[in-house]
Structures are given as C-alpha cells and as structure tokens.
Amino acid sequence: MKSVIVGCGRVGATLAEALEALGHDVVIIDIRTSAFDRLPSTFRGSAIRGDGTDEDVLRRAGVDGADFFIALTEGDNRNIMAAQIAARVFGIPRVVAKVNDPVRADAYATLGIATLCRTNLMVDAIYEYLGYPRKHPPGVVRPPAVAAGAGPVGGSAVGEPVPGVATPGGTSSQEA
C-alpha cells in the first residue's frame, strides 16, 4: 500500500509515522524542509520538498500508482486542488482533502471529493463532551456517488474510516 501525504504538520507527520508502522510505503510532501523535523528519526519513507498542487512536483515525488492520497496543508484550497489532481490526473482511488471551512467541505463532498473538516469534527467533539448530539457525520465525509458504490470504497456515507484518519463515534479532535 502506497500512501501520499501533502503537508507535514502535526497531523501529517503523525499520520506518516502511523501509516508506516502499518506497513505503508509513505511519501510526504511539504513546501518547507523544516516541516520534516516533525518526522521521527526512524521515518524511512520519502520526504519531498515541493508544492503539492504542482502536477510536476507530484509526479517527481512518485505519486503515480499510489493507493491513498491525503492533503493536509493549512490551505483549504491547496488541499482541494491537490486532491483533485490526485484523483483526476493520477487516478488515485482513495483521496481525502482536509477542508476546514464547513461550507466548502460540504460543497466539495457533493462534488465528489472526500473531505475532512476539522471545524465540524472539533465542534462535534465538544458537543458530545457536553452531552449534546453531534451535528455532522463523523470522520471523513464521502461523496455520495462514491459512498453508493460497491467495493472497498463503498459502505455507508460516512462510516469505515481510512486507517489513522478518522475516529468515528467520538473523540476525534484532529489537531491540537
């Protein structure tokens, strides 16, 4: 299983380590070399400096043929664009974009992109802690067309987490 992570922040670096521990071949991309300081010294995957929305950079990083792609930079639009390149240009089957703006996250979920909205996740986590019911589907929100399909990507609209990405059913505060 080959996984590509764009954005080596806290979540990106932690996820890289976790996926590697699960046996994934991990490529992590960030625009700043210093971001890779977050990776553990034991990290054996590729850490590539470059712009994750640049098709050439992605190709050089070896994105072609990856099984899983997640865009976790601090820019919603960068993540959306990187995810669409991953899906459209490279045909990567499982693509997730972190989109912190709930309106954009909803819009893109209906446009065929699986999204992860930190705002919604955190609000829900706090709601649950206070004893109120959550307001959003938990975890990665799948686009309806994909969710309706069969196979490993299918299932319920929101269920089945990609390993390490979502924690359905509760306490998924994604980033401190």
Partner: peptide, 16 residues
C-alpha cells in the same frame, strides 16, 4: 495570484 484559489472560486461559483 493563486491558482488554487482561482480554481476553488470558480468551482464554488459553478456548482454551488
């Protein structure tokens, strides 16, 4: 000046 912003603006305008 940012391609990713221009893409998202147009997609939101078009689809939303």
């Amino acid at each position: 000046g940012d391609d990713e912003d221009n893409l998202v603006i147009c997609q939101m305008a078009k689809h939303h």
